[in-house]
Amino acid sequence: MKAERLSVDKSPSAGRPRDPRIDAAILRAAADLLVEIGYANLTMASVAERAGTTKTALYRRWSSKAELVHEAAFPVTPTAIQTPPGDIEADLRAMIASSRDVFTSPVVSAALPGLIADMSEDSELSGRVMARFTDLFAAVRNRLHDAVSRGQVRPGVDPDKLVDLIGGATLLALLQKPEELVGPAWVDDIAAILLRGVVVHPES
């Protein structure tokens, strides 16, 4: 059933505030279409039709399909680690579980392959997308800094590379063995590797 068409002024006016109802309708339409037809088949025209608006309205808000899809797939950018500070093991498990939960959502699973391909070909787009996670990366840095000060983490651990390891492990599991992501075992296994490494160190 076609959505009720929202009223959109086709002649943009500088400084005019965006209508949040149109934003919400567009993002909801993009998310629904991603799950239904996939990234490759999704077009700005199909999103506009489903949302009951115009392509002009979409392009005023998002410069490309990739930017629209990113916001539709990640509507809320995480800005903090929810576990209480003071336990780096709990922090790591929370980071891994959060990454798993985000990547396995139906919308993100449908969006990721095409979104990654577009970002790899457009460094400016990649930079704008990753900038949405600045606050989360800052939270990881703060937790690692606190853990170093408590003697729980060795100095020099790069928080950006920690994020890369968690995200990369999650993405690879999603592509190769998605069934392993169900349940707590996968989170525990990845956390154990990050916390303890893979080399046996003889007791001194």
Rank of each mutant, 00 (worst) to 15 (best):
Arg61Asn: 01
Met1His: 10
Lys161His: 08
Ser105Arg: 15
Leu112Met: 15
Thr43Arg: 08
Asp135Pro: 03
Met119Pro: 03
Val140Phe: 06
Ile26Tyr: 08
Leu195Ser: 10
Ala73Asp: 01
Arg100Asp: 06
Val108Tyr: 09
Val157Lys: 12
Ala94Met: 04
Ser99Gly: 06
Val69Ser: 06
Glu180Pro: 00
Gln152Met: 09
Gln176Arg: 15
Ala169Pro: 00
Ala66Tyr: 04
Ile190Arg: 10
Ala173Met: 15
Glu180Asp: 12
Ala72Gln: 08
Ser126Trp: 10
Ser64His: 10
Gly38Asp: 04
Trp62Val: 00
Val157Ile: 15
Ser126His: 14
Val140Leu: 10
Ala173Leu: 13
Tyr59Lys: 11
Ile88Val: 15
Glu124Leu: 14
Gly167Ser: 09
Gly127Trp: 10
Glu71Tyr: 07
Asn41Ile: 02
Asp101Arg: 15
Val107Met: 03
Ile190Ser: 01
Arg16Ile: 02
Glu89Tyr: 07
Thr54Ser: 14
Thr170Asp: 04
Leu136Tyr: 15
Ser105Asp: 12
Ile166Thr: 01
Pro17Ile: 05
Lys161Trp: 11
Thr54Gly: 03
His201Cys: 03
Leu175Phe: 13
Pro78Thr: 05
Lys177Tyr: 11
Gly52Glu: 00
Glu36Gly: 04
Ser13Asp: 03
Gly52Ala: 02
Met1Trp: 08
Met130Ala: 08
Ser98Met: 15
Thr54His: 11
Ala73Gln: 05
Ala45Asn: 06
Arg18Met: 04
Arg196Lys: 14
Ala29Arg: 12
Ala40Phe: 00
Arg16Lys: 15
Asp19Tyr: 10
Ser7His: 09
Ile166Phe: 09
Arg154Gln: 13
Ile22Thr: 14
Arg150Gly: 01
Val148Lys: 10
Arg21Thr: 06
Val76Ile: 13
Gly167Leu: 14
Ala48Arg: 08
Pro155Gly: 05
Ala14Arg: 15
Asp135His: 12
Ile22His: 09
Gln152Gly: 03
Ala173Pro: 01
Arg143Thr: 05
Ile37Asp: 02
Ala25Thr: 10
Pro20Ile: 12
Glu49Arg: 14
Val102Lys: 10
Ala117Cys: 01
Ala147Asp: 02
Leu6Lys: 08
Leu144Ala: 05
Glu67Leu: 15
Asp189Lys: 14
Glu67Arg: 14
Thr77Gly: 05
Ser13Gln: 13
Ala25Asn: 12
Ala25Lys: 11
Ile26Pro: 04
Arg150Cys: 02
Ala25Leu: 07
Asp164Gln: 12
Pro20Asn: 05
Pro184Ser: 05
Val199Thr: 07
Leu58Ala: 05
Leu175Lys: 15
Gln176Phe: 12
Leu175Glu: 13
Thr83Tyr: 03
Arg132Tyr: 04
Arg28Val: 02
Lys177Phe: 11
Arg132Ser: 07
Met130His: 05
Leu174Ser: 12
Met130Arg: 14
Leu181Pro: 07
Ala72Leu: 03
Leu162Tyr: 04
Asp19Pro: 01
Ala192Thr: 13
Glu179Asn: 06
Ile193Trp: 08
Pro159Glu: 08
Leu194Lys: 09
Arg5Pro: 00
Asp188His: 12
Leu144Pro: 03
Leu34Thr: 02
Leu144Gly: 03
Gly183Ala: 01
Lys55Asn: 10
Gly38Asn: 09
Val8Gln: 02
Gly151Ala: 09
Phe74Val: 11
Ala90Asp: 03
Arg143Glu: 03
Ala139Lys: 13
Asp135Phe: 07
Val129Glu: 01
Val69Phe: 09
Glu71Ser: 11
